[in-house]
Design a protein around this nucleic acid. Structure first.
Lengths: 177, 177
DNA sequence: GATTTATGAATGAAAG
DNA sequence: CTTTCATTCATAAATC
């Protein structure tokens, strides 16, 4: 989308489909090899959504056979895929709702959101052989974020434009600690 | 993750009270201005990790000079920054271990782990003079993204081409139990 | 090879 | 404190 070219992180050379840093000092962003992508996708479609740190390590470890990879790459991969799937679903829901409204399907006031939550339900609750234990069939919260706006801190405030103009005394010494 | 944070959303450019990103979209959430980020980072590297409510208030108060900000932003900033530094270190450390175990990294006797302890080291206990008096003049440093080409993680590695060629054992069966 | 798209990476906010 | 979610930024890959 954007082409905000801020050139840091030099492009790495592509070697066999994988970026490699000759000196190890450059950092192109990681890009999964075909094999890596395949495995990750498999895991995802198997129901894995939020692998634990331990699982991430194992996955990363295994995938390193196919090329350079760091655990954080795996972490981000799942994070992004989950988010984007959700995002997509949300968009669809919206369209559906909009359609419903325009078509005046308001006959029945059933909550459509629920319908989707069910379908989205993580069927997979089994355990993958290599990646044992928990965090598979997550509840994929459908919670509409009721969020108790508890601002942990009721002292928030900010200066008005006027106040911003006259600079405060400023002396925030950190002599403590 | 951590400093060198990309700031595309031109910090400080207030438009009707709302910051605007380079893409022109309004920033719903707070995004520190360059100056604000600088100060926060300084405080952090000075050793501040969990500021008290009072400190948060003061910091927020001071930073409001550089742009809209609420104390909760400061609160979150420290919370996130602290958590992510830990998280990163954790991931990195594990990757390092993995790497060392998988490959005989004995070639290079340097301990990579150390590289990550440096930044955390300095527990400055001195007074930090924030906001030097002459930094007015509507600076809004154009500080162009020094964005260090820091490879956030130099623990990555990959197998040699040869190793990649012959399919490794990799028993990644997705069979369920 | 410029523009668009897909996706890796980052981070503010908040839930757990 | 840890973990998760959303949104955004940046860039490699795809497309025109």
């Amino acid at each position: 989308m954007e082409e905000g070219m801020s050139d840091f992180c030099f492009r790495g050379e592509n070697v066999g489909g994988n970026r490699v840093s000759a000196t190890g000092t450059k950092c192109g962003r990681w890009n999964p090899t075909t094999e890596q992508a395949k495995v990750l996708t498999q895991l995802f479609s198997s129901g894995l959504r939020t692998p634990s740190t331990d699982q991430i390590q194992k996955i990363s470890n295994q995938l390193s056979f196919y090329g350079k990879i760091e655990s954080k790459n795996v972490f981000y991969w799942f994070q992004n895929h989950k988010a984007r799937e959700r995002q997509k679903r949300r968009k669809v829901d919206k369209d559906v709702i909009r359609t419903e409204n325009s078509i005046s399907m308001n006959f029945f006031t059933q909550n459509f959101t629920q319908l989707y939550d069910v379908s989205e339900a993580e069927k997979v609750t089994e355990t993958l052989q290599l990646f044992p234990l928990n965090s598979f069939g997550e509840s994929e919260s459908k919670s509409t974020k009721v969020h108790a706006s508890d601002c942990r801190d009721n002292t928030m405030f900010s200066y008005t434009e006027e106040e911003q103009m006259n600079h405060p005394p400023l002396d925030l010494r950190l002599s403590f600690m």
